[in-house]
Design a protein around this nucleic acid. Sequence first.
DNA 1: CTTATATAACTGACTGGTCAGTTATATAAG
DNA 2: CTTATATAACTGACCAGTCAGTTATATAAG
Lengths: 210, 210
Amino acid sequence: MLRARTPAAKDERRQALLKAALDEFFDRGFTAARMDDIARRAGLSKGALYLYFDSKDALFIALIETVAAPNVEKVEHLAAAAPSATAALHALTGFMPHLIRETPLPRVVKVLLADAGAFPDVVRRYRSQVIDRVLAAIAAVLERGKRSGELAVDDPKLTARLVVAPVLLSAIWSVVFEIDPEARVDLDALFALHKKMLLHALAANPDAAK
Amino acid sequence: MLRARTPAAKDERRQALLKAALDEFFDRGFTAARMDDIARRAGLSKGALYLYFDSKDALFIALIETVAAPNVEKVEHLAAAAPSATAALHALTGFMPHLIRETPLPRVVKVLLADAGAFPDVVRRYRSQVIDRVLAAIAAVLERGKRSGELAVDDPKLTARLVVAPVLLSAIWSVVFEIDPEARVDLDALFALHKKMLLHALAANPDAAK
DNA sequence: CTTATATAACTGACTGGTCAGTTATATAAG
DNA sequence: CTTATATAACTGACCAGTCAGTTATATAAG
């Protein structure tokens, strides 16, 4: 293996190791995954892996903390930048199929859930720094729709959970149950329907919704 | 340990072992869970455990296949026995808090998801014999509401997924993120809201929609 | 443009501990 | 005495983490 001498090259190698770790943790679970296999998958020896990460735990933690952040910012941006609450819901539901199909996020979520028991503080951080922020962003959209008269919302925080629920369902489905293509779901159709039903359910005045 | 000689006593012991296995698999994951600990938790030695289950894999498979079935039947019954589609949705959403708080199902789901990679055929069976049946029962309720003119439903199978989504969310939430009581969610309120929004979204009366 | 020296990236054999599954032995019950 | 149930000591495979040694690369000296 060519050596990584510059900081940039080392960072690249770190990324490759994280990707390899995700692949192995996802396929075999944290405990069954072998450090040797992770290293080999990234084209390195086990010893070299330990130059980049102190331990298997440290590798796991780095993996979880790395992947979610950019998507949280994307969601917060979509929620805040839209011209109206309705437009925000449109943008968010439109983004979900991409998030689920093209992002490592669903696999990371599965890995996190799988080994939650062994890493309670990672779970706590994830909840406060990822999930709570996403729920807050959506609740803010709903509040905004309520204030502007666009939407009828009783409990924005609780409603936000219902808005998010299909995202978790689709994420889990796509990485766990969609092994055989027979089980494939049309995410564009699913989230289009979700949006439509949400807007019906939250329509501000029932007589003249549209 | 006193010997279990009658078939009933042996069955009781099997149940105790399955319960102990769920506890250990849930806490530590399949690979990290120790057969010795599972046996001890059920008040037996490891050797005795092997009198009841051939291998760790067999124990895992038995666990997954045992727990879901009665709940599937309960859901199918609730869906079919209700006098109307609206009543069925009422009964189903009312049942969910109990299902999540008082049955082992959420923990079994978490265990299944966690080690899905190692048991692809268990996952496939679970999908076809548990999930698909539940989705079909809900789709049937929606179809029924459509035919009777109670509900406006375009795509019952896709809609059924959206009906189920909050159940998975709550199940995962309750067993993974609800470690600290601060994060506790009021499931009765959540599913009451879900029902309300569903009925709004699917309201048949077309002078309000479109 | 060599060649020598220094450095840090990298390797893989090894160790200590763990654990699934087996088996020799013990004992309760008929 | 015989059989079914249970135990705990045992075995063999496996793997995280370590470390003594190897090698690619940078740079200084000739």
